[in-house]
Amino acid sequence: MNTWTIFKRELSSYFSQPTAYAIIVIFSLLSIGLTFTFGRFWDYQDASLNGSFFWWHPLILMILAPAVSMRLWSDEHRSGTIELLGTLPVTMRSAILGKFFAAALVWLLALVLTFPVVNTVNWLGAPDNWAIFSGYLGSFLVCCTFLAITSLVSAFTRDQVVALIVSVSLCFLLTICGIDPVINELRRSWTKESVDLLASVGVYSHFQEATRGLIRFTSLIYFLGLITVCLIGTNLVLKSQRA
C-alpha cells in the first residue's frame, strides 16, 4: 500500500518537473537518430533492429538512466526528507521499491515512445517481431539494472552530481567490458577464459542475445540478480547511515 503511495508521489514528481519529458525526448531523438545515421539502418538492407537500433541502447542508457535516478536518495538526504520518511509507518524496503518502480515506469514510457522505428521496419519488410519485443525487454532490463546501480550509489551521498558521476562510471564499465571492439582487442593478449568471463560480467553479451530474440534463463538471472543485489544494498546503506 505504501509502496503504491510512494510510487505515485515519485511519478508525479517526475512529470511535474522537466526531468521525465527531457529524458523521454532526448532518448527518443538519440535512439532513433543514431539508428538512421551511425546505425546505418539503410545499408543493412535487413528488416531487423538488432544492429542499427538496439545496439546503441546500453550506450545511451549508461548516461541517461543515472540522470533519472541520481536524485532517488541523494535528494532525500540533502532536503532532510529521509527523516520524515524514516518516521512514517513505512518500511525502507517499500520506499526503495516505490521509488525504483516509478523511475522504471518513466523508462518504460521512453522505450515505448520509440515505436516509430518498429512501424518503419514493419512497413519496409517483414521483421521478426518476437525478436523486436525481446530486444525491448532486454533494453528495459539493462535500464532497470542501471537504475538499481544508481539507486545504490545515490544512497551513499547527498550530492546528486557525485551520484551521477559515480553511477555513469559504473554503468560505463559494465557496458564496455562486453562490447565487441573491447572484447576483440582483449582476445589478443588475454586468455579465452578470462575474456569470456569478462564478457559475461558485462551487459552486452546478455543484451545482444535478447535483441536476437533469445532470452536465456542465465541472462534473466544476471539482470534480476544485479537489480536485487543493488536494491538490497540500497536498503543496507540507508540503514547503516542511521546506526
Binding site: N2, T5, I6, R9, S12, S13, S16, Q17, S79, G80, T81, I82, E83, L84, T87, L88, P89, V90
Partner: peptide
C-alpha cells in the same frame, strides 16, 4: 510510529509538491 506525529528540526518537505498535495501524500502514508 502510527501513534506519533513528528516535526523534525529542519521541517523537511518535498519542494516539488503543493502544500495540499504534500499533506494528502502524508495522510495516505498514514
Amino acid at each position: 510510529k502510527k501513534k506519533i506525529g513528528y516535526l523534525p528540526e529542519s521541517a523537511p518537505l518535498y519542494n516539488d509538491m503543493t502544500v495540499k498535495g504534500f499533506l494528502k501524500f502524508c495522510a495516505s502514508m498514514r
